[in-house]
Design a protein around this nucleic acid. Structure first.
Length: 462
DNA sequence: TTTTGAGTTGTTCGA
DNA sequence: GTCGAACAACTCAAA
């Protein structure tokens, strides 16, 4: 064990258990723990408002856990490459350990740092190293089904490792910022009051996994019902790396009926594969000809967008979802599809506007997942859905039994019966305070189909 | 190289 | 009410 310290560079891996970079640094000698808030490198995809709330609490949790081991968490703000290099110079670090991350700005940062110091990138954000899942031709997959087949053949992942038993802090840790000085929490107004059911941090992640492990059996069915608590709600914990996907896999894989959930877990891996192949996927259609779609713009379109963000479209299931998102930083997955489809198809607004809104509002906002899912709904992605798949919000609301969900998030409709709450205007049951539908379903559907046809008729640019 | 089968999550219409 | 067919066209992955 050397006397010179090593740095653990934390990013979306804010945990101590099954954290290969932390374990490696602890084995190397004295440890300096570092987190850098870099708002410039990601450009428009800097951490959004809701996730900043989460980050504050997760860093607080990590800092407490590290302090108990005698290692302060050093906080720096600015260009990540510069800050990591500067701290390495300040403490005379021999080496920097981190987990690999796959957002384009992180891949750039890792490459830049590797040129100027001894950077060791460890696996652990995904179930498996993206390089390890390949087609027969040696390329990375672009279709989920064969990707899943190839990935699951290499499962299970290694058993998660415990927190290292022996950790020594560096004798003279560098100065850092105070967490409060970053003002990650909302102030005026404090819109995070509805976030109180979340428990960010490694302990909260473990508790969420424990709670979910009994529900895996019913996941396949219940996950589609917004009124039912059938989701894992692990997404923000996984995004922040408060728990490893390997730990999640092992907690549920031996139970009955685990496969549907494990497939969802593997989607994180798949979307990381996609953004490695297509780094600009959040900004550019996977199908180039889709860039010619005639999105609505102008004041009327902007007003419709505002109505969508505020949950004032007159479609109860859509409004319930958008309000849940605003109040809790999370939205049920079925409703994410419905609200996204509504923005894109019914309102004919560019999918990137919705993507950016979700990015700012979701505590689980993730570059690969968010872009892949929006492009899937839009039909612009490389895994394009058929253009005629236009979700019908009213029939989906009935099919997936969303009445209680609507009552919870659209209190104006609280007193309506199940048979009218999905479409109160049709039954002439809407109370005065609830807006009329922003557009009729049939009319919207036909407009969307016409718009899609204009690009389908075009030759595909090659 | 060519061929073949398949692709997360749907909706509408008409028999 | 239930059921099957139609809704397009393209790319990917593997044989």
């Amino acid at each position: 064990m050397a006397d010179t310290p090593s740095i653990v560079w934390f990013r979306q891996d804010l945990r101590l258990a099954d954290q290969a970079a932390f374990a490696a640094a602890a084995a190397d000698g004295p440890v300096v723990a570092l987190y850098v808030l870099d708002d410039d490198a990601p450009g428009d995809w800097r951490i959004g408002g809701a996730q900043r709330w989460w980050l504050h609490h997760s860093l607080q949790s990590l800092g407490t856990s590290l302090a108990a081991l005698g290692v302060p968490l050093v906080l720096r703000r600015g260009n990540a490459v510069e800050q990591v290099a500067r701290v390495a110079a300040e403490v005379g670090a021999a080496r920097v350990h981190c987990l690999s991350h796959y957002e384009p700005w992180w891949r750039d940062a890792e490459a830049a740092l590797a040129r100027q110091l001894d950077l060791v990138c460890h696996p652990g954000y995904l179930l498996i190293d993206p390089d390890a899942v390949r087609t027969g031709a040696g390329t990375q997959f672009r279709v989920f089904a064969p990707f899943w087949k190839a990935l699951s053949a290499k499962m299970p992942p290694d058993r998660p490792r415990a927190v290292p038993g022996k950790v020594v802090g560096a004798p003279h840790p560098p100065e850092g910022d105070g967490l409060d000085s970053w003002t990650l929490l909302p102030d005026k107004p404090d819109w995070a009051g509805g976030f109180k059911d979340w428990q960010p941090g490694e302990d909260g992640a473990a508790a969420a996994l424990h709670a979910f492990s009994d529900m895996v059996v019913t996941y396949k069915h219940d996950r589609n019902l917004p009124s039912t608590n059938g989701s894992s709600r692990l997404s923000p914990h996984l995004h922040m790396g408060e728990i490893s996907p390997a730990a999640v896999w092992h907690a549920v894989a031996d139970g009955d009926g685990a496969e549907p959930f494990l497939r969802e877990l593997a989607w994180r891996d798949f979307t990381s594969n996609l953004i490695i192949q297509l780094p600009a996927y959040a900004d550019t259609s996977g199908l180039l000809k889709m860039e010619a779609l005639p999105w609505r713009t102008g004041p009327a379109a902007d007003a419709d967008f505002r109505a969508w963000t505020r949950g004032q479209t007159g479609y109860p299931i859509v409004d319930a979802g958008m309000r849940q998102l605003w109040h809790t930083g999370w939205m049920h997955n079925r409703v994410r599809m419905l609200t996204a489809s509504f923005l894109i198809k019914h309102l004919l607004l560019d999918w990137r506007r919705g993507e950016a809104w979700f990015w700012d509002c979701l505590v689980d906002a993730d570059y690969g997942n968010n872009s892949t899912n929006w492009q899937w709904v839009a039909g612009t992605g490389i895994d394009a859905a058929p253009f005629f798949r236009i979700m019908a919000p009213l029939s989906q609301s009935e099919k997936f039994e969303a009445a209680e969900y609507i009552r919870r998030w659209v209190p104006e409709l609280r007193d309506l019966d199940d048979d009218v709450i999905h479409d109160p205007h049709q039954a002439d049951a809407a109370p005065a305070g609830y807006p009329a539908p922003i557009i009729g379903h049939r009319e919207a559907r036909e407009r969307a189909l016409a718009a899609m046809r204009t690009v389908s008729a075009l030759p595909s640019p090659s």
